[in-house]
Design a protein around this nucleic acid. Sequence first.
DNA 1: ATTGATTACCTGTCTGAACAAGTAATTGAA
DNA 2: TTCAATTACTTGTTCAGACAGGTAATCAAT
Lengths: 171, 171
Amino acid sequence: MAARSRTSRTGTAPAATAATPLRQPTAAAGGPISHAIFRVARLHRMLAGSLLRPTGLYPGQELVMMHLWDRGAQRQTDLIKVLDSDAATMTRTIQRLERAGFVRRRPDPSDARAALIEPTPASQHLRAEIENIWRQLESLTLGSLTDAQQQTTLSTLEELERNLLENTSEP
Amino acid sequence: MAARSRTSRTGTAPAATAATPLRQPTAAAGGPISHAIFRVARLHRMLAGSLLRPTGLYPGQELVMMHLWDRGAQRQTDLIKVLDSDAATMTRTIQRLERAGFVRRRPDPSDARAALIEPTPASQHLRAEIENIWRQLESLTLGSLTDAQQQTTLSTLEELERNLLENTSEP
DNA sequence: ATTGATTACCTGTCTGAACAAGTAATTGAA
DNA sequence: TTCAATTACTTGTTCAGACAGGTAATCAAT
């Protein structure tokens, strides 16, 4: 699902959407928190996407780049582990980053099966931009929450994460 | 991104993943709450997906079905508005639900452009199952949170949603 | 040293989602 | 009445992500 009536366009449409932020989509009344997670996640992802768009990166790709910038050349497997991703997804994400010129591949000297992925020099221009985008994203997400409220929010999310982790790998 | 090292398989792997739930992926340290939202959303979606799998529905499709069961035949536009979705996505979601035999299309007698989407009688078998899945999803998400904590969680999520809504439609 | 896992990656297929372009039918004016 | 929006819906393309196979290279025993 999800699209949220285009970002801009006609100019009047967004207001109409924004007017019903807490609408109970009827059926989902049985799981208000699940539904809220859906909505927040969607909005958050959309925001990340629109902040990232000018850079040419798609949501998720920036995490790969951040890791490469931080830790230098990595094998695909390492990226998969760290980002808790999937081999197939990572293969294609890296192919796209490679096509876009942000990443380069080099055979791993110690293992002929593996390849080392490294950020290109050109990609360094992106780095500050991406970091700034993450700061913006966090700030827009938090709005005017006080430090104490931010702490509560983080704790709440971590609690949800703990529950989900517990109940995800077959309970 | 995201895959979370397969649901089951070797049997030992999940534990390794579960052991580092709050790992700071280095680069994302600049946006701890944004990152927590990512992780929670991913886990939540995965859980929803795995609960839904046996029914043959994919995440998102169940929301469409729930609405159709609740409100009866709807035009595509109405579904789009209510689920805050995208016309293109809805077109294809409905095509898939149609192929799966859960919905049927009928021309709108009052508007030749529109089609009415209605749940098939066969789909009714799914209804209780889906409602049960949503209860499970909510319960697994909430873990052992007290009522008060659940209220806090919901408020927190709604606060985040409000912030994101405000800052999403061009501020 | 040969054989049988395991590991590292890749490809294909299907899903939701975003975006861009369409095609009809309908509506609103001039 | 005609003609220019608007509306309802489709189609095409590109992402991430999940799942189901592959294919080499490496490792661990026998």
